[in-house]
Amino acid sequence: MKLNFSGLRSLVTGAGKGIGRDTVKALHASGAKVVAVTRTNTDLVSLAKECPGIEPVCVDLGDWEATEKALGDIGPVDLLVNNAAVVLKQPFLNITKEAFDRSFNVNLRSVFQVSQIVARDMINRGMAGSIVNVSSIAAHVTYPGLTTYCSTKGAMTMLTKAMAMELGPHKIRVNSVNPTVVLTDMGKKISADPDIGRKLKERHPLRKFAEVEDVVNSILFLLSDSSASTSGSGILVDAGYLAS
Rank of each mutant, 00 (worst) to 15 (best):
E202N: 15
M186Y: 12
K188P: 06
F92L: 15
M186D: 11
A155K: 07
T230P: 00
I54R: 03
S30Q: 11
G16K: 10
V24W: 03
D185C: 03
F104E: 10
N82G: 06
V212G: 04
V37G: 05
A26E: 00
R102C: 13
S227N: 01
V177L: 03
E211S: 13
T230M: 06
D225E: 15
H170N: 13
I131Y: 02
M127S: 15
A32G: 02
A164P: 02
N107G: 14
S151Q: 05
A66I: 00
T23V: 04
R173P: 02
D101E: 15
L47C: 05
F92A: 15
D73G: 12
E166N: 11
N105F: 09
I74F: 07
P194F: 11
T38W: 08
Q90W: 00
V45Q: 12
S227C: 04
S115G: 11
K97Q: 15
V141P: 10
G232V: 02
I54W: 00
A99V: 14
A164F: 00
M156K: 07
L220E: 01
V141G: 10
K188A: 08
E202D: 15
I235A: 05
G18H: 09
A164H: 01
P52I: 03
D101C: 14
V216C: 06
T13K: 06
D121Q: 15
E202P: 07
R207T: 00
P205E: 00
S151L: 12
D225F: 08
D73P: 01
A84F: 10
V45F: 03
V216L: 06
I172D: 09
V24D: 01
L88K: 12
T180M: 11
R120Y: 03
P144F: 09
T157Q: 13
K17S: 14
L220A: 05
A210G: 10
E65Q: 15
A32L: 05
V111S: 11
I54N: 03
C58L: 04
L11F: 06
G62N: 11
A138I: 06
E213D: 11
T96E: 13
I190T: 15
G232T: 05
T230W: 00
F92W: 13
D214P: 04
S191Q: 14
G75R: 12
C51S: 10
T40E: 11
V215W: 01
N105V: 13
C150W: 11
D238F: 01
T40W: 09
L47N: 05
M156A: 12
E211L: 13
V132P: 02
R120Q: 12
C51D: 07
N41L: 15
S231V: 08
S136M: 12
V81G: 07
C51P: 09
A48M: 10
G197A: 06
W64C: 13
A239M: 11
M122A: 05
M163V: 06
G75C: 12
V35W: 03
R102V: 09
L44K: 03
S136G: 12
H170S: 14
I54Y: 01
V35P: 03
N178G: 04
E50W: 04
R173L: 10
S191H: 11
V12D: 07
G20V: 04
D238S: 10
S110K: 03
N4W: 07
P144A: 11
K49D: 14
M165A: 13
L27F: 01
K161T: 01
T148C: 14
D195M: 10
